[in-house]
Simulated scan of single mutants.
Amino acid sequence: MRAFNVAFDAFDATPNPASLAERLADLAVDALIDEADLSPKPALVDRRSSGAHTDLHLGLMHASALSLWPAFKQMADAAIATSDINPALRETIGRLGREGEAAMMRTTNGVNTHRGAIWALGLLVTAAALNPDDLSPEGLSRRAGQLALIEDRHQAADQSHSQSHGQTVAQKYGAMGAREQAQAGFPAVTQTGLPQLVRSRAAGHGEQNARLDALLAIMTTLSDTCVLYRAGEEGLHAMQHGAQRVLDAGGSATLSGRRALNQLDQQLLSLNASPGGAADLLAACLFIDRLEPALGDATRNV
């Protein structure tokens, strides 16, 4: 009987439950893939085309997102082990983020697909792992902002590039770049994107249209450094005002809204302006939105 039990155990194919860190990494990658798949996005890579990009396509965006899974898991593991917001944790996730970026670059042959998203989602994954009892947007953004405010002493020494495009443009135009968005607790997500996502769902616009509306809402106020780098203030004004016109016309679920969205797409393409910063924040929005439904009380027992 003992031998039978041992043999039975050997053939037991029941998978081990995923850890909290693994589930958070899953959700972060899912958010990146869902953002990439969302269509029709103005001047961005989606299921229709590569938007304003000549070096990107949807398959590359998927591969890039999947390459970041280990980095997100390791960030969550570090937060669980530390369980406190402190300089050591900030420097650890900074190092893991740079290692994740290097893995992404190897996957994409040097194309920057998700540098801004690594920063945003890395902080949010870490914030979620620090206190899985509080997965509310307010709690997450507050913890992420506290982390982002801590200086990473090793960042400059480890970076292979002296300054990102976003940092250069933020200094030139005085715009709030990715770092400042995080330090402020992602206001474009919590105050603009998420509320619009909820409103559009409540209006019965359907999930894909609700997500498009959330992206457009973010675009109405964001000083998108990707757009500023490519098209300057003209491009930024075109993005912000065009996105507002779509929402004013009833959003992406309406015929008039779709017409305005197509006009915005054509205008941004003509300016070679791709709202990559808004896309990164939409991924952050989708990640925060699904945390409590996906994890809920189960995280309290991990």
Rank of each mutant, 00 (worst) to 15 (best):
R2F: 12
D9H: 12
A10H: 12
F11P: 00
T14D: 08
N16D: 12
A21H: 04
L27G: 11
A36R: 00
S39F: 09
K41N: 13
P42Y: 04
G51L: 09
H62L: 06
S64I: 00
S64Q: 00
A65Y: 00
A65F: 04
L68V: 07
F72R: 05
M75G: 08
A78I: 11
T82F: 06
D84S: 15
I85L: 03
N86K: 02
A88N: 14
R90V: 08
R90T: 01
R90E: 08
E99K: 14
E101V: 02
T108G: 00
G110S: 07
I118D: 12
W119Y: 14
L123A: 03
D134M: 05
S141E: 06
A144V: 04
A144F: 03
R153N: 13
A156C: 07
A156N: 13
A157M: 10
Q163R: 11
G166K: 00
V169C: 05
A170E: 05
A170D: 11
Q181I: 08
P187T: 03
L194E: 06
L197P: 09
A203E: 12
G206K: 11
N209P: 03
D213I: 01
A217M: 07
I218F: 01
T221V: 13
T221P: 06
C226G: 05
L236T: 09
A243H: 06
Q244M: 10
L247Y: 01
R259D: 15
A260F: 05
Q263C: 07
Q267H: 15
C285V: 01
R290K: 14
P293D: 05
A294C: 14
T299C: 14
